[in-house]
């Protein structure tokens, strides 16, 4: 593709009639055209690098050595974080809430999306609209009402509340992505399977789900991301360390009194970020494709 964009460039110079380029100029142009990409990588990864660097320093060194490369790298900060009960309990909560949210989101959205994509039932458009409209509702609008609802229903400080709240936030997007995907699967395949005697559930399990795997993976990643990263609702809906997830625990660490323990904060941040980045890197091509075609949001 790089080569595909290059010929028109030279074609232009010929058309305009400028003098032909020397190899040196061409090389210089090549280097210059890489500058935006280098800037993009700096913009994206500098915060990660800075945090990684601080996490390997001692508390004293954060002030004495401003360079990105630690003089005497140490794992003390990581040790400190891992042995902190606040971290371990938050980590476990995050894993439970993350997996729970992913499962609940898919379990409620998949049948709904199938119904909207395959059945022509009364109120189909109305219901579809209904599941999509809330996508426009910002979380700030539901923060207080959900809190009050949870208080009155006795659902405050429970992991299951977080799971359903996140699943509810994600479901509209999930339904929307899946309806588009299911409609792309030819009916004829399913009809053929039906003729062969496959039941509805068999068709969904063995035809629709495998063919929609990219959409399911994208939704799974997005649901897990929401649960793993969401912060304000956790802050409002939990009151004890038993249910708090990682972002809240990290926030608490930053709020603690006295001189900030920068290495510990940095190590904590890295340890919250790392697991999800690792998961993501395994499935990134589905997610990028899903998000690019899905029109964002």
């Amino acid at each position: 593709m790089t080569t595909a964009t290059m010929p028109p460039e030279t074609g232009r110079t010929e058309a305009v009639g400028k003098k032909p380029r020397t190899p040196l100029v061409r090389k210089l142009r090549r280097v210059l055209s890489a500058v935006p990409l280098v800037l993009l990588m700096i913009w994206t990864f500098l915060p990660f690098l800075v945090t990684l660097s601080v996490s390997f320093k001692t508390r004293v060194e954060t002030f004495s050595n401003l360079s990105l490369i630690p003089e005497d790298p140490t794992l003390n900060a990581y040790n400190e974080v891992i042995t902190d009960p606040n971290f371990t309990s938050a980590f476990i909560n995050s894993v439970i809430v993350g997996i729970g949210t992913t499962i609940v989101t898919i379990v409620i959205s998949l049948p709904a999306a199938y119904a909207f994509a395959r059945f022509n039932f009364r109120g189909r458009h109305l219901l579809l609209l209904f599941t999509l409209l809330p996508r426009l509702v910002p979380s700030i609008g539901v923060l207080v009402p959900i809190y009050r609802l949870a208080v009155s229903a006795g659902l405050l400080d429970k992991r299951i509340t977080l799971i359903f709240v996140y699943a509810g936030t994600l479901a509209p997007l999930a339904v929307w992505l899946m309806v588009g995907f299911f409609q792309g699967i030819p009916r004829e395949i399913e009809e053929a399977a039906a003729v062969d005697g496959a039941s509805l559930f068999q068709r969904i399990r063995y035809i629709v789900m495998p063919l929609a795997a990219p959409a399911l993976i994208t939704i799974g990643v997005l649901a897990f991301r929401e649960a793993w990263n969401e912060f304000t609702l956790v802050l409002v809906l939990t009151t004890t360390p038993d249910t708090r997830t990682l972002p809240f625990a990290l926030f608490k660490l930053g709020q603690s009194e006295g001189i900030s323990n920068f290495p510990a904060e940095a190590a904590f941040a890295i340890l919250t970020v790392l697991p999800f980045i690792l998961v993501y890197s395994r499935v990134e091509r589905y997610v990028v494709a899903g998000l690019t075609s899905g029109g964002g949001k």
Binding site: V104, V107, I108, S109, P111, A112, Y114, A115, F116, F119, L127, F130, T131, L133, P134, V137, G141, V142, P145, I146, L149, F164, V165, A167, G168, T169, A171, P172, V175
Partner: peptide
């Protein structure tokens, strides 16, 4: 039946609270 759970959860978490 299929769309009921999603519609329920979305109403309880998003539509009703707003």
């Amino acid at each position: 039946l299929f769309s009921f759970p999603a519609v329920m959860v979305v109403s309880a978490i998003l539509a009703y609270p707003v």
